[in-house]
Amino acid sequence: MAVRRLGRPRLHLREVDSTNRRARELAAAGAAHGTLVTATAQTAGRGRQGRSWSAPAGRALVLSVVLRDPPALLPLVAAAAVAELAGDSALVKWPNDVLVDGRKVAGILAEGRPQESWAVLGIGVNVAVRMDDLPAGLRGTAGTLGLEPGDVEPCLQRLLCALERWLAAPRDELLAALRARDALANREVRWDGGAGTARGIDDGGRLVVQRADGERVALEAGEVHLASGPPPGDA
């Protein structure tokens, strides 16, 4: 499947502090939908909640793409695309952490200006990362696809194809795919403000959680962790 709109034009940098920062600059200057920024090495990548994203040079896929008129469920779209790249065993910890064998293999960050109808979607995937390449604090939670450096570019093309497809998919198809990969289903979780049992993703893309008293709440966004043990992918 050829990429029709995403990935052209493409700016590839040997090293950059943040592909998202560069892509935001391009978007604000009028860059077209699908404009892609990639880098061999990223020195100051960021994930959600202001966390850093470590990407060893040449071993991780690091990209940011400009999207015009992005969908409301963009983080979930990104998760579906990355999970497809990661393989049949990959699970999604709502909203967009992609896990393989319980370890986080990708970082996803969507930023933008809704009033100007654009967003920048930043994705980092540990394609060929070795655990020794990562800071000691990440080795217990981070994962890798276990491939080789030469697989980074083919993975980029596969990811762009998947992202293109999920951007165009009907909402019910997207939600069905995520429910099939739900890492939190029927598990005890906690979040800032409460705890309960995850009961799936509703039609609005929200995580439904049942509290101990039986009340069900739908979480719009934020950090959700397993109630016991270290939060998976909390890196």
Rank of each mutant, 00 (worst) to 15 (best):
A198D: 08
N126I: 03
E153H: 14
E153A: 09
M131D: 13
P154H: 01
L147M: 05
D202N: 15
L167N: 13
A168C: 10
I123P: 13
A142W: 04
V209A: 03
I201G: 11
A142Q: 06
A183L: 04
R187L: 10
I201F: 15
R179G: 05
D172V: 06
I201H: 08
E116D: 15
P114T: 13
R187Y: 13
R113F: 04
G112R: 06
L145M: 12
P135N: 10
D151Q: 06
A195M: 05
A168Y: 03
R211N: 02
E111N: 13
T197V: 15
A212E: 08
W191Q: 07
C161R: 00
I123A: 07
V209R: 07
R139Y: 06
G140P: 03
A128P: 14
A128V: 15
A136Q: 08
P170H: 05
V129I: 02
M131R: 12
G204F: 00
L134P: 03
R211C: 08
R199L: 11
R181A: 00
N186D: 13
G194C: 11
R211F: 04
V208W: 12
G122S: 10
D132H: 00
G194I: 06
G124V: 05
C161W: 07
G200F: 14
W166C: 07
R139V: 13
D172L: 04
R158Y: 00
L174W: 09
L156T: 03
D132E: 15
T197Q: 14
N126V: 10
G146Q: 04
T144H: 02
L159S: 02
A198K: 12
D151E: 04
A162N: 07
L178C: 12
R171G: 12
A185G: 08
A183Q: 14
